[in-house]
C-alpha cells in the first residue's frame, strides 16, 4: 500500500476566492487530524478528498484514485460524516443506515445486515427502530457515523463529529472514534477546531490557515508547544492559597464566582503542588480539570515558530 493521500500543488478557487493555495501533502495511512478555523480551507480539502470537486490546479490522489477521474469509485472506499443536517426525517434508524449502504452500492440484503451490525457496534441497538426526528443530538451524531461506516470504507472523513454535543456525549463519541482509529488497515481524517478531539483520536495532524498548510507533524510535537492550563474549583477562603500558587509562578485568573479560577502553570509543573498548597491553607480543592487551550493560540504559535523552518525545509512529508 502506498500513501493514503497525495496532494501536489493543489490550489482551488471559488470564483475569485482562493480556498486552498498550493497545498502539498503526502500522508501515510493512520489517524490524521485536520485543524483549522472556519474558512481555513478544511471543508474544501474534505470535498477534494471526497472527489466532489476538482481542484482548480494540481493533482490529488486518494487511496490510489485520482480525484479528477474516479470521484464516484473513490466514494465507494471513503466514508464521509457531515457536520450536521443530512438527516432524513420520517425514516427510522435502520432504514437510514441501510439506505446509506445501498447508495454506496451494497446489495439490499447485505446493506440491511450490515446496518444492524454497525448500529449494534455503535451501541444503538435500542434506538434502531425509532424515527430519526426523535433522536437526540448525540444519537443522531452516532447515527451519522453508522451511516458512514456501513460499507466498511478504507478511509473515514469526519467533519466536526463532536459539534453540539455535551461533555458526556463528546467523551463517548471520542472513545468511539478512538476505537475506530485503531482498526487495522483503515485510516481516518478528523476535522475539528478543538485540539482535544484530535489529540484523543489522532496520531498526526495538519494545521490549515487561510488555505495553506501551516503546520503538520506528529501530535506529540504539536503538543509540546502548548501551554498547560487547569480549571480549579474549591471551597473555603482561598486568598492565601492563590497567593501561594502565584508565588510558585502559576498564573491564576479568578472568576467572578470566587470559588473557581483558571491556572496557567509553568513547565514541569506537578499537580500534587495544588493539593499540597490547598492542604496547607485549609482550602478544599474540589475540582481540577485540565483545560484545552483554544486552538487559535496554538496555531498562531505554530505559524510563528514554523515560519522560519518552513522556509528552509518546506513541505516535508508527515
Amino acid at each position: 500500500m502506498t500513501s493514503l493521500l497525495q496532494l501536489r500543488q493543489v490550489t482551488h478557487f471559488y470564483g475569485n476566492v482562493c480556498a486552498l493555495r498550493d497545498v502539498n501533502l503526502e500522508i501515510e495511512p493512520g489517524a490524521i487530524g485536520l485543524i483549522g478555523q472556519n474558512g481555513a480551507g478544511k471543508s474544501t480539502m474534505m470535498q477534494i478528498l471526497l472527489g466532489l470537486i476538482r481542484p482548480t490546479q494540481g493533482t490529488a490522489t486518494v487511496l490510489g484514485h485520482d480525484v479528477r477521474t474516479a470521484g464516484i469509485r473513490l466514494r465507494g472506499r471513503v466514508g464521509f460524516m457531515p457536520e450536521r443536517d443530512s438527516i432524513l426525517p420520517g425514516l427510522n434508524g435502520i432504514e437510514y443506515v441501510a439506505l446509506a449502504g445501498e447508495l454506496c452500492g451494497m446489495p439490499r440484503r447485505q446493506a440491511m445486515r450490515r446496518a444492524h451490525e454497525t448500529l449494534s457496534y455503535l451501541g444503538m441497538e435500542d434506538a434502531r427502530y425509532r424515527r430519526l426526528e426523535q433522536y437526540s443530538v448525540g444519537m443522531s451524531q452516532r447515527l451519522r457515523l453508522a451511516a458512514t461506516l456501513v460499507h466498511d470504507p478504507d478511509l473515514l472523513l469526519l467533519d466536526e463529529p463532536t459539534a453540539g454535543l455535551d461533555p458526556e456525549g463528546r467523551a463517548a463519541m471520542l472513545a468511539l472514534l478512538d476505537t475506530l482509529a485503531t482498526r487495522p488497515g483503515k485510516s481516518l481524517v478528523l476535522s475539528s477546531h478543538l485540539l482535544g478531539d484530535i489529540e484523543r483520536v489522532c496520531t498526526s495532524a495538519i494545521i490549515l490557515n487561510q488555505g495553506q498548510v501551516v503546520g503538520k507533524g506528529r501530535l506529540d510535537e504539536l503538543r509540546a508547544q502548548r501551554q498547560q492550563c487547569y480549571q480549579l474549583h474549591w471551597e473555603g477562603d482561598a486568598t492565601n492559597f492563590l497567593a501561594a500558587l502565584r508565588q510558585r509562578g502559576v498564573d491564576v485568573q479568578v472568576d467572578n464566582r470566587r470559588d473557581q479560577a483558571r491556572a496557567i502553570v509553568p513547565d514541569g509543573w506537578k499537580t500534587r503542588l495544588f493539593f499540597a498548597d490547598a492542604c496547607e491553607h485549609s482550602v478544599l480543592l474540589t475540582g481540577l480539570v485540565p483545560e484545552e487551550e483554544d486552538l487559535e493560540a496554538v496555531y498562531h504559535r505554530t505559524i510563528n515558530s514554523s515560519e522560519a523552518s518552513e522556509r528552509v525545509a518546506p513541505r516535508s512529508a508527515v
Binding site: L52, I72, R75, G76, D85, S86, L88, P89, L103
Partner: peptide, 22 residues
C-alpha cells in the same frame, strides 16, 4: 416539499451526495 424541497432545505442532499453516486 417532502420529496425534493426538504432535501434541499434541511441538508438531506448532503447525505445522498456524499455516497457513491453523482
Amino acid at each position: 416539499a417532502i420529496l425534493v424541497g426538504d432535501d434541499m432545505r434541511q441538508g438531506g442532499l448532503t447525505f445522498y451526495l456524499s455516497r457513491r453516486i453523482s
